[in-house]
Amino acid sequence: MDSSDEKLGESNAARSDIIQARFQTSYQPRANHHFELNVDIEIPSQGVTAIFGESGSGKTTLLRCIAGLESNITGFLRVNGELWQDQKLCLATHKRSLGYVFQEAYLFEHLTALGNLQYAINRSVQPADSDFLEQVINVMGIKNNLSQLPEQLSGGERQRVAIARALLTQPKLLLMDEPLASLDTPRKLEILPYLERLRSSFNIPIVYVSHAVDEIVRLADHVVVMRNGENIAQGNVAQLFSRIDLPLGIGNELGAIVECTIVERNTEWHLMRVAFDGGSLWLPVVENSDNSTLRVRVLASDVSLALTPHSDSSILNILSGQIVEVVNDQEPAMALVRLKVGESYLLARITQKSLQSLGLVSGKSIYIQIKSAAIVR
C-alpha cells in the first residue's frame, strides 16, 4: 500500500457507515497455477453485501483477508470507522469483532445446540444477555433443537445453530462463506427465510459470499463482482443486475430486479398490482401487508418487445420504455437488450432475427411485454 492509500484511509477515518478494504496477495494453490488477489472495495456497513463470482474468482480469499486469516498480504481494512489493518497494524483474527459462518457448520459435536450457543456467549467481550439470546433463538427458529446434539440435527438446523452461535459473539461484522453450498435444494429453501429474518432483525453488516444467483437476488442489497482475483464492479443489487456487461447470470438466469410497492389487490382473480417508477405489474397475490415493498425479478427470457401496444394478448404487463443498449448474447442466435423504464432498467433476450426485423437500436422507443415476474423478497 502506498502513501496515497494511507491518506485515503485517514480521510475516511471518521466515517462509520462504510467498510473499506484493500488487499493484495499472491500464491500458488496448485502446480502450474498462480493466483493473485488485487481488491479495492468500499461497501456500506449495513444490510447484506454479496461477494459474487465464479469458482476461483477470489471470493473466499477476500473473505479470509477481511477475517485476518490470510498471511503474506498487503492490506488496509477499516470497519465502521475502526482501523483493523494497515501498514503498521494488523489485528489478529480473535481481536477483530467479527463472526464467521463457513460452508460447513463446524459445531462442537460433544455439546448440545444450547451448549454451542453458550460457548459463544462465554467468549464474547460483552456477553449476550438473556433477551438477546432469546431473540437469536427465535429469529433462527432453533428453540426446539436446543437439547439436541449436532449429530441429531439436519443440515439446515446445524447451519442455523452455527449462524446463531456467530451472532451471539455480538460481532460488528458477520462473514458468511457460501453457507448454503453444502445443503440440498429442500434444505436450502428451508434456510433462506431465516437468512432474510436475520438481515431484517439485527443491525449487523453481513458480507455474504456466493456464486448462486438465486441467493444473491433474494438476500443482497449491495454486490461486489469478482473475476480473476479482482473486483470488476460493485453497487446496488438492482443496478448491477440490470447491466449486460457483467457475468451475473447467463442464458435463462439473466434478469433484472425492481423494487415495487403493492398498490392494489384483486380478490376475484387472485392478483395484485405492484408499482415501481416505470409503471406497474400484475402478479399473483402473496401474503403481505398493504403498501408493503417487494423485490421482483424479471428474467430477460420472459420479456418480449413490440413496436406497438397489443391489447389482444394474454400478457397483462405491457410497459413503454426505451432501448439503452444492445449486445450479442453468448448464443449466436440471441441478443441482449437493455431497456430503460422510468428510472429503472429491464433486460430482454431475443433472437437476432427479431432484433433485425424490428429494427431495434439504442434510443428507440419500444413496448415491453412481460410474460411473468417472480417475487424474490
Rank of each mutant, 00 (worst) to 15 (best):
S71F: 10
T61S: 14
Q103I: 09
G81I: 08
T61C: 08
D86R: 04
E104V: 07
S55V: 10
L91R: 07
A113S: 13
L98W: 00
N80M: 11
E36P: 00
H33Y: 15
E109R: 12
F102T: 09
V39G: 03
L37Y: 00
L111R: 09
Y100S: 10
V39A: 06
R64L: 10
L111S: 02
K59C: 08
L107H: 02
A105S: 14
E42I: 12
Q46Y: 12
L111T: 05
A92M: 13
F102D: 08
D86P: 08
E109V: 11
T49H: 06
L89D: 01
E54M: 11
F102I: 07
C65A: 15
Q87N: 15
G75N: 04
S45Y: 02
C90N: 14
N38K: 12
S71R: 14
F76W: 11
N38A: 13
G53K: 05
S45C: 13
I66C: 09
Y106E: 11
V48E: 00
E109G: 13
E42A: 12
N72Y: 11
F35C: 09
V101P: 04
E82D: 14
F35A: 10
S57N: 05
F35M: 02
H94E: 15
V39N: 05
V79M: 02
Y100C: 10
E42N: 14
G58C: 09
I43Y: 01
Q103K: 03
E42K: 10
Q85L: 10
L111Y: 11
Q87F: 01
D40E: 13
F52E: 05
E42H: 09
E42C: 14
L111N: 01
L69D: 07
Q85D: 05
G81W: 06
G58L: 02
Q103H: 07
G68H: 00
Q103F: 05
H94A: 13
T49R: 00
S97D: 15
S71Q: 15
R96T: 08
D86G: 09
V39Q: 04
S57V: 03
G58T: 00
E104Y: 14
T49F: 06
T74A: 12
L83R: 01
E82L: 11
N72T: 11
T93W: 01
S97V: 02
E36I: 13
F108Q: 01
L69I: 10
Q85S: 11
A105F: 03
D40H: 12
E104P: 09
A67E: 03
G81Y: 02
T60H: 08
T49D: 02
E109T: 12
E36W: 00
K59L: 09
P44S: 10
T61Y: 08
G81H: 06
L62P: 00
Q46S: 14
I43G: 04
E70C: 12
L83S: 07
E82A: 12
T93S: 15
E36R: 15
I73N: 00
K59F: 09
D40A: 13
N72Q: 15
R78Y: 03
T61V: 12
E82W: 00
N32H: 14
E36Q: 15
L107Q: 05
E109C: 10
G99N: 05
L98A: 10
V39R: 00
D86A: 03
G53D: 04
T112N: 03
Y106I: 11
